[in-house]
Nucleic acid binder design. Structure first.
Lengths: 146, 146
DNA sequence: CTTTCTGCAAACGATTTGCAGCAGC
DNA sequence: GCTGCTGCAAATCGTTTGCAGAAAG
C-alpha cells in the first residue's frame, strides 16, 4: 500500500520542517510501517527491526507523529498500534479482529465515503461540533480466528 | 439516552448469569454510566460517585464488561473511557473532540447504517473476515474547544 | 565542530491484584 | 454462616524521560 510516490523524500521534508534529521533509525521505522501495510504494535516493530531498543522505537514514533508522518490508532489490546499518516499511505479503514486484536487495512469505497461525509456534516450541525475527520473500523474475526 | 425499559433488571440478570451479585457499588457505577450518556473516564466516574475507591471502579467495570453490560471505548487521551453496552444504551456513534478528548454520543442515521453495513459486507468478502459490527467515530472540535 | 539522536536505566502513571475484613443472599 | 465483594496498598507493565556518549550535517 505505497501510495505516495516519494515516501522517503516526503518524510525527510516533514522532518526537516521541524528541524529534525532523517536518520537511519527513523528511516528503518518508516520502512517497517510502510511494509506492514497495517497498524503495528511496538513489539511488532521491534521484531522486524533487530537491534532497535524499545525506547528508541517509542521516541522515533513520537517524532514521526509530531511531524505528521505517522499516527497512533486505537488499540483494543495492551499495546498501541502505529501506522503511516494517510497522506502517505492513502485514506483507508480498518478491519479489527475481536479475537486476536490484529488490524488490517481496507480501502474505502466511494459510496461509503460519501455517506460518511454526509453523516459528519449532519452530526456537526446537530451538536455544534466542527468535524475534521472520521474513523471507521469494521469489527469481526480474521480468517485465522474464524 | 435510556433505551432499555428495565435497565437494572437486565443488568442484574446478566450478572446473575455469571453468578455475580448486583451490589450497591455496581448499581452506582451503572447509574453513572447511564446518566452520563457518553463514554466516561475513571476519574469522571470517581467524581460522580463519592467514596468509590479507584480500584473498585476498575474492578467493577471489569465485571460489567465481562457480563456484557459495559464496554471500553478507545480513548485518545491517557484514560480509557467506558460506556453501557449498546444493548442497553442503543446503537450510536461518537463525536470525539481532538482537543480535550471528550466523547459525545450521536445517534446513527438509517441511511448511514445502510452504507456502513454494505461496506462491511464488501470488506468481509474481500479479506476473509467475518464482520460482526462496526465503530464509527467523528473527530473534530467540540463547542467548548472550537 | 555543533546540534540533534540514541541507548541505557530509572521514573511514571494507568490499571491490576493479594489479602483481610465487610456485605449480600 | 458462606461466598463473594470491597478497600487498601503494593505490584505490573506499557510508555516516557534524564543523561552521557554517538552520529548527522
Amino acid at each position: 500500500m505505497t501510495v505516495h510516490p516519494d515516501m522517503h523524500g516526503e518524510v525527510a521534508g516533514r522532518l526537516a520542517a521541524l528541524e529534525q534529521r532523517y536518520t537511519t533509525t527513523r528511516r528503518a521505522v518508516v520502512e517497517t510501517l510502510s511494509r506492514a501495510g497495517r497498524p503495528v504494535t511496538i513489539p511488532e516493530i521491534l521484531s522486524s527491526t533487530p537491534l532497535l531498543p524499545q525506547s528508541s522505537a517509542y521516541r522515533t514514533l513520537a517524532v514521526l507523529i509530531e511531524a505528521g508522518v505517522a499516527r497512533r490508532v486505537t488499540g483494543d489490546g495492551d499495546h498501541g498500534r502505529f501506522e503511516l499518516a494517510e497522506e502517505l499511505s492513502g485514506h483507508h479503514h480498518h478491519l479489527v479482529c475481536e479475537v486476536c486484536g490484529t488490524v488490517d487495512d481496507v480501502p474505502p469505497s466511494t459510496r461509503l465515503e460519501r455517506a460518511l461525509d454526509e453523516a459528519a456534516r449532519a452530526a456537526a450541525e446537530d451538536q455544534g461540533y466542527t468535524v475534521t475527520g472520521h474513523r471507521f473500523d469494521l469489527v469481526g474475526r480474521c480468517p485465522t480466528c474464524r
